[in-house]
Amino acid sequence: MEIFEWIRLILGGGLVLCGLIIFLIELYGIFHLDYALNRMHAAAMGDTLGISFSLVGLMIFSGLNFTTLKMMLIVIFLWFASPVSSHLLAALEVTTNENLKEHCQVYDDLKILEKELKEEKEVTGGKEA
């Protein structure tokens, strides 16, 4: 049935095109953003979604195969592994940067943050009442 072939082409091609567009957006974000932590955010999210869309589109091209199962395994492995490497890179950046206070807000103790949040809630609660 030839109509199925054209449906497969349009669907798979659309998904692969979406994946390429997401990679392009991620590339723009890598160049435009200021600091290393912001760039890490763009890279992690863009990588995960871009490769997911691209590989799902290529799975549709490949049909019901053993190759399709291997591609699904790649996607599942990247979903597990990419957050771990992003976390480690962020820990590297925070640990080795001496001038972290210029780029983001640093709390030495967790209790200071909790006190600030409690004061903020009291102020907004007082305004509503």
């Binding site: 890490m40 871009g50 490769i51 691209s54 890179l89």
Partner: peptide, 19 residues
């Protein structure tokens, strides 16, 4: 400028090579 920038860029290159 930072080391983390370079590691992130190489990771991205790896993902594109996978596709």
């Amino acid at each position: 400028p930072r080391v983390a920038d370079r590691i992130v860029a190489v990771n991205m290159m790896g993902t594109m090579v996978m596709v």
